[in-house]
Amino acid sequence: MAHPLIDGAEPGDVIALVGPNGAGKSTLLRRLAAEHQPDVGLVFQDRLLFPHMTALDNVAFGLRHAGLRKHDARQQAREWLERLHVADLAARKPDALSGGEAQRVAVARALARRPRVLLLDEPFAAVDVEAAAVVRAVIRAEAAGRVTVLVTHQPLDVLALANKVAVMEAGEITQTGTVDDVRTRPRSPWIARMVGVNLLKGTATAHGIVVNGTTVAALTDVRGEAFAVVHPRAVTLSNEQPHTSARNAWPGRLADVDIELDRVRVRVQGAVDLVAEITPAAYSELTPTVWASVKATEVEVYPA
């Protein structure tokens, strides 16, 4: 019986399988590989190129087992190596390849059999920028007509490659949907962190959503168990109690700070914990105790 992740997919779908370490993503890929045998390609996290074969023979191996004659298998294998810009390394053994080169050979090996299901386990981990770009381009170009499942930890891969996302936590798939669904309506703290938004869980009422006894004002028709998303850029921080139209304002203490070149992400601990994204200039003027405020229109409520 096929797994619903593949069963519910359309040809052409690129599904990003994301989740915390140890959630069982690699195990699921192996299960999918076994279920879709022989019409499947799998790029292992450690690539697992056969150490006693050249790059060319590694790619030709799968073609030979698809019934091609030796000459044809090698010919096609060479073409795949060319597509991944590693044809000049055809005669090398895997121990003479860099991580990025080996990854490109591994992708060529998996794609050469033209599988209906292509599974990639962290294809961009431990790979140089150039190799990652080549592999991304080939995966995108080859997505048509097949279902591609991509395990990744990088939000960039999700945005650049995937049209769907499946979130896996503790061995279970906890959410599936389009990239936009998952970005705007995350259903677990982990995926909310990955897409970089604040996720609140509580009870929706006529006034908004009640989170741990605090009512967060929102405009919503949802009632009962609900999630709410607040984008960090929608959170305003000030040293004094704000006199703006924002209906949500709480005092809090600055906690974890993540400073980047053009922005600062800071967690404010108060009645409702929120991450705010502000400019470095604004951050430099803050005192340790601040007021966090959010407009009711910036609180997006949806059923749990």
Partner: peptide
């Protein structure tokens, strides 16, 4: 030997003898 190489070969369509 890393038995995972045999897994990789199986995914590439190789039977037990191969």
């Amino acid at each position: 030997l890393d038995p995972r190489y045999e897994d990789a070969a199986a995914v590439l369509g190789a039977g037990p003898w191969s």
